[in-house]
Amino acid sequence: MTRFLVLSGLLLAIGAYGVMTRRNAICTLLGLEIMLNAGNLNLIAFSRVSPSPAVGQTFVLFSIGIAACEAAVGLALILAMWRRYRTVDIDKLVSLKE
């Protein structure tokens, strides 16, 4: 049980590093998805010790579905950014800066 929690914590940290570091918008999305998966791993690990494991697993199913939605919308935004600025480098998004 502990091993799964440790794994999910480690993966969350790796995903967070990815979100913080990467400049390409798609790579940031990858880091975000890694964090979501780490959370799902944690949920399943805890569902094993809960009185009704089905609840935890349905929660994970919802989480997977919502992650898919969020990836779709995120990629639509990246595409819109590509059309407007011809780059996916998030450091180039400075038009709101003074």
């Binding site: 502990t2 969350l12 940290a13 967070a16």
Partner: peptide, 17 residues
Amino acid sequence: AMVCALVLAGTLIAVAA
């Protein structure tokens, strides 16, 4: 970013253990 990630990992692993 590495420092933040390490702190995060350390906290989570400590709690998990």
